[in-house]
Structure formats: C-alpha cells, structure tokens
Design a protein around this nucleic acid. Structure first.
Length: 502
RNA sequence: GAGGCUGUAGCUCAGUCGGUAGAGCAACGGACUUUUAAUCCGUAGGUCCGGGGUUCGAGUCCCCGCAGCCUCACCA
C-alpha cells in the first residue's frame, strides 16, 4: 500500500518522529539545538518557589507572581488537553512541569510544541507559578527544541526492567530507572571523598602503566595483548602494587593510584573483568597505619554520600560506627569453625568434610580455603581480620616475633573482601625466595615469566618500611549504596556482544 | 566451563489442554485552556530469541544454538 507498511515496526515508530524533525526544520528551528545560556538546573528553579508572591489585580482578583526561569530537560510525560499541553521535563537535578498554552505562546511556538515527543530534550522559559491544582510549573512563554529523539523511550511507568537491556542501554537506564542516576552520582562522591582524604594526608596520586610485560602483584589470569612495533606480548595489569612500590623506592613516600585493573576470570555478582582499585602506600608505616587509614577512607566515603553510619543492606543494616571490630585470623577461624587453626590435622579433616582437596597441598592453603568457605560468609562486619598465615602472603612482612604470621589484614563487610593491606615486605632476598616458592609448581617458562626481576632489583636499592593498602572501590560502592550486584555500580559492565540487529 | 531459570509489539506484560497471537503504555487520526500514569472515541503495529524436529496443526512439546539472570567452578 505504502512504504511505511513495508518498513520494520521500529522504522514505523521512527517515522512520525522523523516527520516532526522535518517540520521543526521547516519552522526554522535546529532540531539538534545549540548553546543555551542563563539556564537554571531544575532543582535550583524549584528552589525559587519561595519567591512566588500573591498580588491583587486591578480587577480585584488574587493571582500569583513568580520569577522568570529558563530550564531544559528531557520530556518524561506529556498531557495534551486541547489547546494546552502539560509537559514534565527532567534534568539530573529534578523534574518540573511546563504549562504550554496556545494563546500564551502564540501560533509559531504552538506549532513547535506539536513536534515534541516523549524523550525529546527541550528548553523553556517562563514564569514560575502554581497551577490551579497547586503544581509548581513553568508557565511557558518561550520554547526551544534542544535535541530531537528518533527512538521511542521505555514505557513511562515501568521504565526498563530487563537487566540485560538496563546494562546494554545504560543511557536509558540512567534517566528512566529510578535511583540509577543517584547511585552513580554517589559513586562519584565516594571516589571524590577518597581522593580528598588521601590528598589531605599528603599522598600523591600517580598513574602507573596498565600495559605490563609481567602481570604481577596479585594472583589472577591476565588479559593478553601484543605490541606490534616492539613485537612483544603484553598483559593488562592485574594489580597496581609492584609499580607503586617502585615509586616508594624512588622516594615518593606517600603515593596512591586509583585505577582500573583487569582480570581474565569469571563474572559474578561480585566480579567484573575490569574493576576499580585503590592502592595506597605509606613509607615508615605498617599495616596498623593502613587500618586506621582504611577506616578514615570508609567513613569519609560514607559521609560524602550524605548518609548516617547505619546503612541499609538488603534485609539488614550495616553499622559503620567506628572503630570497626578487629579480630585475628586465628581467632576468627576458631570462632566460626570451632576448630583450632594450629591443629593441622583437625583443619584437614574439616577441609575434607567440605570436599576441599587436601592431597599434597600446603596446610595453610587448605586452612585458607576452609576460612573462605566457612568464615568469610559470616564476617558481616565491618571487621578487620588481621595476621594471616605467612605462607599465603608472598608480598608481606612477617611478624617480628613469629615468622609464621604475616602482618596483613583484610576488611570484610557482608562477607565481601573490601580491603587488603600489608606491612610491605622490603627484604629483596626474601621476596625473591617467596616468588620462587610461590611459582613452584608452575611450568618453568611460566614461572620465569612471572618472576619480576626488576622489582627485586628495585628492592635491592632500598624500599623503606611501609604500609600498603588495596581497596575494591566497586565493592565499597555496592555496600555504601545498597547495590546487591557489582553491575549496579559499574556503568558499563562487560556483556557478550549483541547479536545481529535491524 | 557445569546446572537451573528466562526470552512474545518500541517498552511493561498476559497467552488455558497443542487449535486463527492479546492487553496496557508509546505511536497515528479526532475531542478537550489547569492536567498529574490526564480522560474519551477510532486506527495501525508481531522473524513469539535463532535453527531443526514431532504433529493435520507448535508461542505452547522435543533437540541444537544464541543472549541474560542465578548457583557452582575459576579468582595465592
């Protein structure tokens, strides 16, 4: 019959929008808009409600007089009532109703308003007053199209609910799913507060390399890539640690990096292949120094989100009242398993009952698997677990009076590992030995590849005794914003590529 | 990587026992100068995730694949 009926349904939905786009051009407007000065964020415009006064007209009627405001935003809702249109527009500070009357704006502007669709970005100027039903509104005298939209927005009351669509179409999720924008803005506040706190304490922020010839500093499978001109394989970094420690050697006494690391591993509600990590190193400190710092960082982040110290989390509440509980690894183990962590045989029996492989493995590794299985889920915290078995801590200094125990702590909240800190190992010979022990069991070519000789050389040049801290920013943000999955705090979590479209 | 669940209009969702694919919102046409998820009348819109199979007949049953979610595995 006509071309429209042969088009795809999506194209048919676009068609009326494209026709309106042409109409806007015919009316002499630019459908893609341009700079707009003197515009007020909607939140600020709303705050001017108090400036509205009541006056009595010459005819003796009482009416309102309000300030002139100019606002811009996306059309969320449109109600047409004859020669009157009510538009709800929204920017990232709030929502406000616009009242557009044909008589009030004139023929030309009225024609322009006929070209508006849900989702369009528009601007309006007029008097801020209340409608008859008391709704604060802009009584429009002038309208602009700022940007025409060609796709229909999501359903107006439910928004997007399909988690896949929410992640793929995050740009829609941000405006149409309640709370999403707020959560990501909170994430920014958290990161800002952490930077501010560190900066105030004299730390300097640096940017280390993300391409590593040797992916060290953590145990994780790296992403592999290749440099064409140099003809060498490279890895995306899995940790910030080894380069920051080199800077400690270089004399940067308080140094941190807040950046992305990449781990080529599984995806889960708590794992995304790329995530944001803070690592901070303080010369002449130790793990207790970093424990205090961690607490300060968490509290500063919390304060920045404008919340109290009781934070809702699912069905329960997390109590961030300082000081956070502190418990040794051994005590925590005993408390939550009922087994003496020193009793290797009892630990092994417990491990076997959990179907953990014990054959030919180091007792501390077995113990730690039991710990992860039975203890970590019970650490609702916030709780600092300190003094880890030395054999599972290859980058950590041992306790002076007990070389079996490493000066390391982890901060657990709701069973999640949020922070990890050490008194940093600075003995180059011991470090080299621990690397070798750690790598024993790996094929020789792989173990040589992982041995970072330059890092050992750096230690031989002298790294001051220091405390080092790592904080998982995504997980911390989850906890401070009530997000039950990491995908709710990462703007664009990794997804498989979309199949064919159109 | 394994198992379970899910996938229907742009969006949110129904779809009985296997018998011609539905609603709301959005869109389009019409009425309405104080609406609030506006309302009322009318119209149009489908690769039922993809591919095979069983059947007279498949959105529905079976097999394979794709994607998402959950659990597990991996994650010193």
């Amino acid at each position: 019959m006509n071309q429209a009926s042969s088009k795809s349904p999506a194209a048919q939905l676009q068609q009326s929008r494209r026709e309106k786009l042409q109409k806007i051009i015919q009316l002499g407007h630019d459908p893609w808009g341009h700079r707009l000065d003197e515009r007020l964020p909607i939140g600020e415009a709303r705050a001017m409600e108090s400036q509205i006064t009541k006056v009595t007209t010459d005819e003796g009627r009482e009416e309102e007089q309000g300030p002139r405001v100019r606002v811009a935003g996306r059309i969320m809702l449109q109600r047409k009532a004859g020669k009157l249109i009510f538009l709800d527009i929204r920017d990232w500070t709030g929502k406000i109703q616009l009242l557009v009357g044909k008589r009030q704006v004139g023929e030309e502007q009225w024609e322009l308003a006929q070209c508006f669709d849900l989702g369009d970005l528009i601007a309006a100027e007029g008097e801020l007053k209340h409608t008859r039903t008391g709704e604060l509104s802009v009584f429009v005298e002038r309208l602009w199209i700022m940007t025409k939209t060609l796709e229909p927005p999501p359903e107006k009351h439910h928004g997007l609910t399909d988690p896949e669509l929410r992640q793929r179409l995050r740009y829609l999720d941000l405006t149409y799913t309640p709370g999403v924008m707020e959560r990501f803005l909170r994430r920014t506040q958290i990161v800002q507060a952490i930077r501010r706190t560190l900066d105030e304490q004299g730390f300097v922020e640096v940017e280390g390399p993300t391409l590593h010839a040797i992916a060290g500093g953590a145990a994780a499978r790296p992403f592999e890539t290749y440099h064409n001109a140099l003809g060498i394989p490279l890895y995306l970094r899995i940790a910030l640690e080894l380069h920051l420690k080199r800077l400690l050697v270089g004399g940067m006494e308080r140094v941190y990096e807040l950046g992305r690391v990449y781990r080529n591993e599984g995806i889960s509600p708590r794992h995304n292949p790329e995530f944001t990590m803070l690592e901070a190193y303080q010369a002449y400190g130790d793990y207790h120094t970093m424990m205090d710092l961690t607490e300060q960082l968490v509290l500063a982040a919390l304060a920045a989100t404008g919340q109290g110290q009781q934070v809702p989390w699912g069905e329960t509440t997390i109590d961030f009242t300082p000081p956070f509980e502190r418990i040794t690894y051994a005590e925590a183990f005993r408390k939550h398993t009922g087994v003496d962590p020193e009793d290797a045989e009892a630990v092994a029996r417990l491990a076997q009952s959990l179907e953990i492989e014990t054959e030919g493995r180091h007792p501390d590794v077995i113990k730690n698997e039991v710990f992860e299985e039975l203890v970590e889920p019970k650490l609702t915290g916030p709780v600092f677990v300190l003094d880890y078995p030395a054999s599972i801590c290859p980058l950590t200094k041992r306790k002076r009076d007990n070389p079996q125990v490493a000066e390391r702590f982890e901060l657990f909240i709701q069973g999640m590992e949020v922070a990890n800190a050490y008194t940093e190992l600075n003995d180059p010979d011991l470090q080299e030995e621990l690397f070798r022990t750690q790598l024993a069991g790996l094929p020789p070519e792989e173990s040589m590849a992982r041995m970072d000789h330059d890092f050992i050389r750096a230690l031989r040049h002298g790294m001051p005794p220091a405390g080092g801290l790592g904080v998982g920013i995504d997980r911390l943000t989850m906890l401070l914003t009530g997000a039950q999955t990491i995908r709710e705090v990462i703007l664009f979590p990794l997804l498989r590529p979309e199949g064919k479209r159109e």
